[in-house]
Write a protein that binds this DNA or RNA. Structure first.
Lengths: 113, 113
DNA sequence: CACCTGTACAACTGATTTGTGTTATAGTTG
DNA sequence: CAACTATAACACAAATCAGTTGTACAGGTG
């Protein structure tokens, strides 16, 4: 694990923030959640998420533009899949942080007996 | 590494997105970058980042509210530090993704000879 | 060929959020 | 009192999300 330069160059700061920003929308997290189970087409995602086709298409476009998803065309459908496996790791790490915070809160609220 | 429930509950989706959203601002990434080197006071950060005191204070408040930073009062100054070490891991992972994408692009542009 | 479907894209609206900046105030500490 | 910090209120600009509508393109089907 190489460590990052200090201070971070402005360009890199922007890229990092942009990546986080892409993941900072609940709708897109839900899309990624669905894609954990494998490829999905736009219409499948739209149906499962209860969202409009154009809207889902937009979010998929953002995620694909960020290099997180890739598309595969099969006949009349376009299937999206996760190509940047690390995003799932990111989500898991975030959940780990959240869990830890909840435990700390529980200690404060409940007290250590 | 425990795997996440499927589908992710809506509450968790919101929490994950919120965490990413907090990190999705360049100014806050810069703050975290500075805090990698250890504690900093508000005025130090404001000076180093060339931002206003109130602005820096707001960002610090957001990061602290998210459980990422903690404050320590020493006399006249308030020093902030990173308490959620995982955020640095997150940034490193993001940088890893970015690097990988750049390499893929280089392969496409430059070609494998 | 004509037609339907799935998808992408563009434009527009409306609502919301957010960051920055400014100003002012208040608390705390030296 | 002076310095550091937090907070609030306000203005302004910018981004963005959802929703809608329309369109265009490609693929499949009859």
């Amino acid at each position: 694990m190489e460590s990052l330069p200090y201070p971070l160059p402005d360009d890199l700061v922007e890229l990092i923030a942009r990546r986080f920003h892409v993941l900072g929308e609940p709708s897109r997290i839900r899309v990624l959640d669905r894609l954990r189970g494998g490829e999905r087409s736009v219409s499948e995602l739209a149906a499962e998420l209860g969202a409009g086709q154009q809207n889902v298409s937009k979010h998929l476009s953002v995620l694909t533009g960020a290099g997180i998803l890739a598309r595969r065309k099969d006949g009349n459908h376009v299937y999206y899949r996760i190509v940047d496996d690390r995003v799932l790791g990111l989500c898991e790490q975030v959940c780990g942080s959240l869990e830890q915070q909840l435990q700390s809160l529980a200690l404060i609220v409940g007290g250590p007996a």
